[in-house]
Simulated scan of single mutants.
Amino acid sequence: MIVVKTKEEIELMRQSALIVSKTLGMLAKEVKEGVTTMQLDKLAEEFIRDQGALPGFLGLYDCPSTLLCSVNDAVVHGLPTQTPLKDGDIVSIDCGALMNEFYGDHAYTFEIGEVDPETKKLIQVTKESLYIGIREFKLNNRVGDVGFAIQQHCESHGYGVVRELVGHGLGKKMHEDPEMPNYGRRGRGKKFVEGMVVAIEPMINGGTHKVRQLKDGWTIVTQDGKPSVHFEHDVALVDGKPEILSTFAYVHEALGIVSNEEDEFRQKALVL
Rank of each mutant, 00 (worst) to 15 (best):
I2A: 14
I10P: 00
Q15E: 15
L24Q: 04
L24Y: 04
G25H: 08
G25K: 06
M26Q: 11
L27A: 06
L27P: 01
K32W: 14
T36I: 09
K42G: 13
E46C: 11
E46L: 15
A53N: 07
P55S: 13
G59F: 14
D62Y: 15
T66M: 05
V71G: 05
N72H: 10
A74D: 04
G78Q: 01
L79G: 02
L79M: 07
P80V: 05
D87N: 08
I90V: 10
I90Q: 02
D94G: 15
D94A: 15
C95R: 02
C95V: 11
A97L: 09
M99L: 12
N100G: 07
N100T: 02
F102G: 01
D105L: 09
D105I: 00
H106M: 07
H106T: 01
Y108S: 02
F110T: 01
E111L: 04
D116H: 10
D116M: 13
K120G: 12
T126H: 06
K127A: 00
K127V: 01
K127C: 04
I132L: 12
L139E: 10
N140F: 12
N140V: 09
N140R: 13
N141R: 13
N141A: 13
G147D: 07
I150N: 05
H153M: 07
E155H: 03
V161G: 01
R163L: 09
H168S: 07
G171R: 06
R186V: 02
G187R: 05
K190L: 11
M196K: 06
V197E: 13
M203R: 07
N205W: 09
K215S: 15
T219L: 14
V221R: 01
V221S: 03
V221D: 00
E232M: 11
D234V: 09
V235P: 03
E243N: 06
T247F: 01
T247D: 04
F248T: 02
Y250K: 01
H252L: 07
E253V: 14
A254Y: 05
G256V: 15
V258S: 15
N260P: 07
E262Q: 10
E262N: 11
Q267M: 14
